[in-house]
């Protein structure tokens, strides 16, 4: 099979124009079942020894070869080349967000700083367990989906928030945080990680995610970081950390639809920033004024849908039971 591998190269330490990003085409003949990584290794060994990339296991375990293939992050070793050829070409770029060291190799400092920032170890608060702590199978099975993370950085590469704001904790670190907030051994005797949830509810944490699904799409191991972030929002609200715009927004949205069937767009932003938050409300005034002048303000009187009683009954019926403690039956805390 003949294919052109189009690589975005860069050598920031070069003194000539190679210090800036440029594209280089490598026409190669590869086996039908070759991966993108196979093709890159072949190029490095046969055609151009100066092409830099990271790789090790070649079987989606080590997490070394995350890069952008046709614009989206993934593992080169897990991507069969003939499934991603577009008009005879596969484009390969270094992972996004993190700075390029050379060619397809990026600097992971930012990635590890964020993992460290969420204290990636069990923190039990309260008295020491009297004996061995046996966690239930269900709890561990649930956690195994998150512990499948191989730290490849594909999610960080494609995160739409990190792209504009490097202070965001980001999908990998937040998925790692969930690995602990959902662990019955972490937090207090009930398994509630109060301290973590408080810290994660602060700016740069769970509420800064845009729910764009890029990380879910990019993750080669099915960790679904965004889904974990959403689960932590629920945990944080249940733990009582609801005094922020994000929690108020979710709350006001759900109440509005639960009560009337549709969204009350006029009142939602007011309730999200807080009724008494005059500076924030004033901040929206120019936007509201421009919209009004163009005749596009949402209706002042918000109408209910037909048979709204049915919606309200569904709302009542689907309210979650009071949070069940996540401690396993075998808890040594009794």
């Amino acid at each position: 099979m003949d294919v052109t591998i189009r690589v975005r190269r860069q050598d920031p330490e070069a003194v000539d124009e190679r210090r800036l990003p440029y594209w280089q085409d490598y026409p190669v003949t590869i086996a039908d079942n070759a991966t993108v990584l196979d093709a890159l290794i072949q190029i490095r060994e046969d055609d151009d020894g100066t092409l830099s990339l990271r790789c090790s296991c070649r079987s989606a375990i080590c997490g070394s070869c995350a890069m952008r293939i046709n614009g989206h992050a993934g593992l080169a070793c897990k991507t069969i080349a003939n499934t991603v050829i577009q008009d005879g070409v596969i484009t390969v770029e270094p992972a996004g967000v993190m700075p390029v060291v050379k060619d397809l190799v990026v600097n992971f400092d930012l990635f590890w700083e964020k993992i460290e920032a969420v204290d990636p170890y069990l923190k039990h608060i309260g008295r020491e367990p009297e004996g061995e702590y046996i966690v239930s199978n269900d709890a561990m099975l649930h956690l195994s989906s998150v512990t499948a993370c191989i730290m490849c950085g594909a999610c960080v590469s494609d995160c739409t928030v990190l792209e504009v704001d490097p202070t965001f904790l980001g999908p990998a670190a937040l998925a790692k945080a969930y690995r602990f907030t959902a662990d019955p051994r972490d937090g207090d005797d009930e398994g509630v990680s109060m301290e973590r949830l408080w810290a994660l509810s602060e700016p740069t944490g769970i509420w800064d995610c845009t729910r764009c699904n890029e990380c879910v799409q990019a993750c080669p191991k099915g960790v679904a970081p965004m889904d974990r972030i959403m689960a932590m929002r629920e945990q944080a609200i249940q733990a009582g950390y609801d005094n922020n715009n994000g929690a108020r927004h979710t709350d006001a949205f759900t109440e509005s639809v639960g009560h009337s069937g549709r969204l009350d767009e006029l009142r939602l932003p007011i309730k999200s920033v807080g009724m008494m938050n005059l500076p924030a409300l004033m901040d929206y005034m120019p936007v509201a004024f421009r919209a009004m002048r163009r005749g596009k303000m949402p209706p002042i009187a918000h109408k209910n849908v037909d048979n709204v009683e049915a919606v309200r009954r569904i709302f009542d019926r689907t309210q979650p039971e009071p949070a069940a403690p996540k401690v396993s039956n075998n808890s040594p805390f009794g």
Binding site: M230, R233, I237, H249, T254, V305, V311, T318
Partner: peptide
Amino acid sequence: WTCTGAGVIQEKNQLF
């Protein structure tokens, strides 16, 4: 018809 929840309701109460 009602709102789909826009993904926002789903963070708080997916079943609803």
